[in-house]
Design a protein around this nucleic acid. Structure first.
Lengths: 225, 225
DNA sequence: TAACATAAGATTGTATACAAAATACAGTAG
DNA sequence: CTACTGTATTTTGTATACAATCTTATGTTA
């Protein structure tokens, strides 16, 4: 386990929530790697809390698919097989398509403006070369579309699906060869939404998602070794 | 609260799982109604366990959207507004469409056979007039399609979405006027899948889902009064 | 050496104890 | 009568204690 695991006590939240967010972050960032055991006493000591909030946080991670617990054996960080990834992408594709279609109907002028800004931000972040910034800018671009659906349940599901492969997805951005392509896709999606052309935008988002598949598959192969 | 709340201790499962399933069932059956408080001590006493497994079960229900907890105030059974229902159905439609499309590609001969059987079972259950049996037969019909997708993540999401409106959906079956319609839709879906005609089957499942909307909306209106 | 038994230690499961916060309520001032 | 205040009670949050189970190490026997 990594030593970067410390609690962020800023808010007046129940410890279980703080622990949950901390562990979730650690898993998504890769500080806790798939297969790694989540031992209650160890985590409790490291985070300076008792086992109770740790256990409750683990139950939450479990329901989100980020951890797997075997009764009386404990929890481990969930990993994804290539099949799992294929499955998730299949779902993501359907829901991303839904989200752009709904967005075409519901998006406001302010949101379109924000979408443009975030598209440009992403463009700039590519120049900066900072991976974290790129990932963040990319997320923000897509978030505008999610928000435009005005469907909180859908938004949370999409976020969850996206997070499930965050670890692998960042890898995609590492390769500068993909940048041009990404930029073009964002522009096409933006244009499609502005013109409210559902057919085009659906096709573009599909391409956008499926482009990630190949790269991610390779990563998984690495992991499974 | 209802008194039917008792633990089913058959399996050698952690109590949190038993409690989780018990509460989940109670919520879906309507024994615990939306807005009702889930008080730890009360539930612990009623189920004959300590607060610990109750709390962990509540954390799980929370992540499934079946309960809502407000820090330091406790948890309540989640209810659905009309908007929530619309949102869920929007997602369900997309994922149900995906599932029949994938099923067209992947379904096996055995599964087609099973689908036929379950279609007939549903037909018979309608004659019986037993609501519970109808609901169960309906679930089993659709389950075959879910299983055929060979995508466990998708299956669990669809089950979750379906369960979220189980309370309201049963109402749909109460009205015999809907039976003929339902039967025809099932037959059309079955035929479409056998012929692997994605266009037809997608259209049919869409109709099948959206037919539920109006009825369910009325129920919600009742609840919100 | 391999297989197995057994005991020690580690880890999870559950209950309980105590602290902190929210709620309900009675009493009082205005 | 209303609004407020302080207190008692209830309820949740967290820590800890104990029990059950699993793991690991050790030693014994064939």
């Amino acid at each position: 386990m990594n030593d970067q695991l410390t609690l962020n006590m800023d808010a007046y939240l129940p410890l279980r929530d703080v622990v949950f967010h901390t562990l979730r972050e650690a898993i998504l960032r890769g500080d806790l790697i798939p297969g790694e055991r989540l031992m209650e006493l160890q985590l409790a000591a490291k985070l300076g809390v008792s086992r109770t909030p740790i256990r409750e946080a683990i139950r939450m991670l479990e329901q989100e698919g980020l951890a797997i617990t075997i009764p009386r054996k404990g929890a481990i960080v969930a990993g994804m097989t290539e099949k799992d990834m294929k499955d998730v992408l299949e779902i993501r594709e359907a829901l991303e398509e839904l989200s752009v279609q709904v967005a075409c109907d519901k998006i406001t002028d302010e949101e379109i403006e924000q979408l443009y800004k975030n598209m440009k931000n992403f463009e700039n972040s590519l120049k900066s070369g900072d991976l974290k910034e790129m990932a963040h800018a990319d997320v923000e671009f897509h978030d505008v579309i999610y928000q435009a659906t005005d469907n909180p349940k859908l938004i949370s599901m999409l976020n969850n699906l996206r997070e499930q492969m965050y670890r692998y997805r960042v890898e995609y951005l590492k390769n500068p060869e993909n940048h041009e392509q990404l930029l073009m896709e964002h522009e096409a999606i933006y244009k499609g939404i502005v013109e409210k052309n559902k057919v085009v935008v659906t096709e573009m988002i599909r391409k956008h998602i499926s482009n990630q598949v190949a790269v991610v598959k390779n990563m998984i192969r690495e992991q499974e070794k």
